[in-house]
Design a protein around this nucleic acid. Structure first.
Length: 688
RNA sequence: GGCCCAGUGGUUCAGUUGGUUAGAACGCCGCCCUGUCACGGCGGAGGUCGAGGGUUCGAGUCCCUUCUGGGUCGCCA
């Protein structure tokens, strides 16, 4: 047995017992004849006392031990003298008096300190070390807890955990898919699932009745702090339920999770608001209700006011809306400028405002455009009092909603109304069934094409698509969309209408989800479901500002992995097996000449790489350098370096910086490069 | 694809209107120390200032290009 206890779990109750612990050496305090070591494992830190008199020969192991080495220590747990108690650690009242020790693994100096805040790229490159930090371990532990609580809840409610395929078919109407080539079927591809949507519905047809899965999902879209290309959803589906049943289930589930993970209880029922209300009152389909700050429509006042800018907007079919900020008169000029800048960033032409001074004076650039009557009407409508600040946005409906929605959040931040330990969770219901896609010039499914519209809206499915409301709902926590779900269509006739409304031809229906339409002919229960992003929930609950803090091995902004260097180039043989070829265009577009890939030295390839790394407009300028690198590459060739591989950025560096004149640098690179083995880039000649 | 921010020994940072040999802390290496807990003391090594080009008598500092990472808009049913 390598150990009897975790370091972090030892307490006074373990006094005088013989224990064996293993862990990483966090710090060493060497007093000469006695050395203190903070030994750390996932449960915490324990002070180990190493006495020369006791350890004898083994003492030199401790004397020479490097930070972060892995050490096994056995000995007795002793109570610390009162004055040597360390209140900063949980084990602070005890210490391990070492009787024997073994160095299990020596550690090289770490590339960064585990105590410092360190550059993101370093953290990701050495993620295995980054995870060793207490906060990361705690985040992952917490994530596990949330996942387990969710599963416990669903298990208890009679849900069955079923796995669905990762290699599957492209999902309709969604984000871009990650695709996987098939060796057996040349020229054909699987898609990685964006969600198990279709499969879970087919499980309902199969009679599973209540299903859940902690499912990995993939979307090939650009990343954000709260968006990773692969992420985890807790996915569920139920048969013989309506929307109300699902919402009650979700409410119960989230209350269970919050109670047992955060010790947070929600006394009342979750707030429910319709999408329409959310958009009008808060300018967002995921409103943050930790504060109110509602958006107020003053279009009617604007229509007849004396300010021509507002009037014109209204005449053109736009709206004018306002936010009244209680106590907003304290805004400084630069804060107002910031708000205006935000409004403009999101497309507003400007941001009008009125400040009501505490003494009742009205301060605004609008005073000269507005009549006293207008201002009075606005103050009345927005219920503004002395000391308040009213800001306006006038434009098309969508833009006004968006801009005021964002300003609302920014204002809340100024007043620090978005506290991390405050949790407001709500349902947004009655999403529109369709939204108009400018890009495609047609209505597309707002949720997905299997979403059930309200009964009373079925008649207008094909005639007034913009007005159809779906039985679709989101769960929103503190302004973040946690997840969404819907009642599904289980009636072939309605499904057919839906496809028609979306403009699918019979051919397309058959090709894209023929199997599903077919399956629904054989007895489909009414069903509905939901899925929420596990990563996002955990992120919010641990108070992190990026998903990377709660995912063990996340990707960077451009969806690559700094640790493994994925994605990378595969060799020609693999491509051949898959019957894949890369076109010239792909080669120069997909930047396989990325810094971390490596290449065979070949005159053409080096030249090609050089060309790839230069922008078109700079090519003439760089021509001379290009000749240098070709010369350099030739020299390498003559030097019999057929197995030589270099990092591509090293190659470009050579050609840019050294121009083959710095022989020391070149020799260094040769030495360095020979030790690198993997990687092969297929760059064809692109200079013509 | 657009916009914004950052890049200075291993790490975190400082670096004045452009001006001697680029500093500090931690870490690392060597020596001393039997009650420390971010131990302490003495000594030492370590830097193409991300890269290239330009302006200048002179660039870490100004300009252009480029790489890397982050944030954001578009995008994300």
């Amino acid at each position: 047995m390598l150990r009897t206890h975790y370091c972090g779990n030892l307490r006074e109750t373990n006094m005088k017992s013989s224990v064996k612990v293993c862990g990483w050496v966090n710090t060493k305090r060497d007093m000469g004849g006695i050395i203190f070591i903070d030994l750390h494992d996932r449960e915490g830190t324990l002070q180990v006392v190493c006495d020369l008199e006791v350890l004898k020969d083994k003492f030199k192991i401790i004397e020479n031990i490097k930070n972060q080495s892995v050490l096994q220590v056995s000995g007795k747990i002793r109570l610390r003298d009162h004055e040597t108690i360390n209140p900063k650690i949980a084990t602070g009242t005890v210490e391990l008096y070492a009787e024997d020790c073994t160095l299990l693994s020596e550690a090289a100096p770490l590339p960064f300190s585990l105590d410092d805040d360190v550059r993101e790229d370093l953290r990701l490159k050495y993620r295995f070390l980054d995870i060793r930090r207490e906060t990361m371990i705690n985040n992952l532990k917490f994530r596990h807890k949330i996942q387990k609580l969710t599963q416990d809840y669903l298990d208890n409610e009679g849900f069955i955990n079923v796995e669905t395929p990762m290699l599957t078919k492209s999902t309709p109407e969604g984000a871009r898919d990650y695709i996987v080539p098939s060796r057996v079927h040349p020229g054909e591809f699987y898609a990685l699932p964006q969600s198990p949507q279709i499969f879970k519905q087919l499980l309902m047809v199969g009679g599973i009745d209540k299903y859940y899965q902690v499912a990995r999902c993939f979307r090939d879209e650009d990343l954000r702090a709260d968006r990773q290309p692969e992420f985890t959803q807790v996915d569920m589906e139920m048969s013989f339920v309506n929307q109300e049943d699902v919402l009650l289930h979700l409410e119960k589930m989230f209350k269970y999770i919050f109670k047992h993970s955060m010790n947070v209880e929600f006394d009342e029922k979750f707030t429910r608001i319709t999408w329409q209300t959310a958009m009008d009152r808060y300018g967002s389909d995921k409103p943050d209700l930790r504060f109110e700050l509602p958006i107020i429509d003053i279009t009617d006042i604007a229509r007849v006011c004396e300010f021509s800018v507002f009037r014109k907007v209204v005449d053109d079919g736009g709206v004018v809306r306002a936010i009244c900020v209680k106590g907003g008169d304290i805004f400084t000029r630069s804060q107002i400028d910031e708000l205006t800048k935000t409004a403009q960033t999101f497309g507003a032409k400007g941001m009008a405002w009125i400040s009501l001074r505490p003494d009742g004076e009205i301060y605004s650039i609008l005073t000269k455009y507005f009549s006293e009557k207008d201002i009075k009407a606005i103050i009345e409508k927005t219920e503004a009092k002395n000391g308040d600040f009213i800001l306006f946005c006038a434009d098309k409906l969508d833009l006004v909603r968006k801009v005021l929605g964002i300003l609302r959040l920014e204002i809340a931040d100024i007043f620090q109304l978005r506290r991390k330990d405050d949790y407001k969770i709500l349902f947004v219901t009655d999403f529109p069934q369709f939204e108009y896609s400018e890009e495609e010039g047609r209505f597309v499914a707002a949720h997905h094409p299997f979403t059930m519209p309200y009964e009373e809206d079925i008649d207008i499915l094909e005639t007034d698509q913009g007005a159809v409301r779906a039985q679709a709902y989101d769960v929103v926590l503190n302004g973040v969309e946690l997840g969404s779900g819907s009642v599904r269509i289980h009636n072939s006739k309605i499904q057919e209408k839906m496809f028609n409304a979306l403009g699918f031809s019979d051919e397309e229906i058959k090709e894209r989800f023929g199997f599903m339409v077919d399956a629904f002919r054989y007895g489909t229960p009414p069903h509905a479901g939901f899925a929420f992003g596990l990563d996002r929930l955990v992120m919010i609950l641990v108070g992190a500002s990026s998903l990377r803090e709660v995912i063990a091995f996340p990707k960077t902004k451009d969806a690559s992995c700094l640790m493994t260097n994925a994605p990378n180039v595969v060799d020609e043989e693999q491509l051949e097996i898959l019957n894949l070829g890369l076109s010239q265009k792909e080669l120069s577009l997909n930047k396989k000449a990325k810094s971390n890939d490596q290449i065979d030295i070949d005159v053409d390839k080096v030249a090609a790489l050089a060309m790839l790394s230069i922008k078109e407009e700079n090519k003439d300028k760089m021509k001379e350098d290009l000749l240098s690198i070709i010369e350099f590459a030739n020299q390498l060739k003559e030097a019999d370096t057929s197995n030589l591989k270099l990092k591509t950025n090293e190659v470009t560096n050579v050609f840019r910086a050294d121009k083959v004149t710095n022989t020391n640098r070149r020799d260094d690179m040769l030495k360095n490069a020979k030790t690198k083995e993997d990687g092969l880039i297929l760059v064809k000649k692109v200079i013509e």
